[in-house]
């Protein structure tokens, strides 16, 4: 598989502040990669380097020619105060194709409807975006990312603040899009337990460093204990991996890793 994105000894940061140094990996076509780590560890920095809004301080971040990203931002970054219909929001994913000083055409509208159908909420096309539930909003934002016909779907914390049912449905939808359309997917999340059972590879970003591999390679007690710096157990239940961090201090019990 050809690499769509290649980090070659890239050092990333802001000004003189280095966040991640000397990281090398690539994202091949058809990959389903989870970029996982606690808040502040550097996930967003890597994401910005991938999307092109942050140049590496050293090394290179190379991308395949004419690569198009379908970006799904964190739900909270969108202002739901705007009285926009779901269909209008989805059509924004085609604004760069529509061009300056032009209005969306019938074709843009049809493609937006098709994208909504793809994510299962075409019946909500005429509803105000702000009136949707958290899961429905996320589906609308995924449809907006898909309508631009991307090579890579990038989701930033897609399940943040969602209940169990919505989380499962959204992750299932993303997995389905990856399998059905052979879409390359990059999913950023702080929730290792959620992501690990859906993605094919994991890039773990913690303060102690960066490691990338298949789910089986990363989801080991040895790797996670070393990376997080605390004792970690990895259990398996009906094919699902569950990461459990041992409670430290009084040794009373365990709590789940977030």
């Amino acid at each position: 598989m050809s690499a769509l994105i290649t980090f070659d000894h890239a050092t990333l940061g802001y000004g003189r502040r280095v966040v991640l140094s000397d990281i090398s990996f690539d994202i091949p076509s058809g990959d389903f990669l989870g970029l996982v780590g606690p808040n502040g560890a550097g996930k967003t920095t890597i994401l910005r380097a991938i999307l092109g809004s942050l140049a590496p301080l050293a090394g290179t971040v190379a991308k395949a020619p004419a690569l198009r990203f379908g970006y799904v931002p964190q739900r909270d970054s969108v202002d739901y105060n705007f009285p926009l219909k779901v269909l209008d929001v989805v059509m924004m994913g085609r604004y760069d194709r529509i061009g300056l000083m032009h209005r969306p055409t019938r074709e843009d509208r049809d493609r937006a409807c098709a994208a909504l159908e793809h994510v299962g909420i075409v019946n909500l096309a005429e509803n105000p975006l702000g009136a949707l539930s958290g899961g429905q909003k996320q589906r609308a934002l995924i449809a907006r990312a898909l309508v631009g016909e991307p090579n890579v779907l990038v989701l930033d914390e897609p399940t943040n603040g969602m209940d169990l049912v919505s989380t499962t449905q959204i992750l299932g939808l993303v997995r389905e899009l990856h399998e059905r359309d052979n879409l390359t997917v990059l999913m950023v999340s702080h929730a290792l337990n959620e992501v690990a059972n859906y993605v094919e590879r994991i890039a773990l970003v913690v303060e102690r460093g960066f490691r990338i591999g298949t789910v089986a390679q990363i989801m080991t007690e040895e790797t996670l204990t070393q990376m997080y710096g605390i004792p970690v157990e990895v259990d398996e239940m009906e094919g699902h991996r569950i990461v459990v961090a041992r409670r430290q201090g009084n040794g009373i019990g365990v709590h789940r890793h977030a």
């Binding site: 970054s77 705007f82 631009g148």
Partner: peptide, 11 residues
């Protein structure tokens, strides 16, 4: 105005 992150990503 509505979603500057997405707009930036789209160039």
């Amino acid at each position: 105005s509505f979603d500057r992150e997405m707009a930036r990503t789209m160039g």
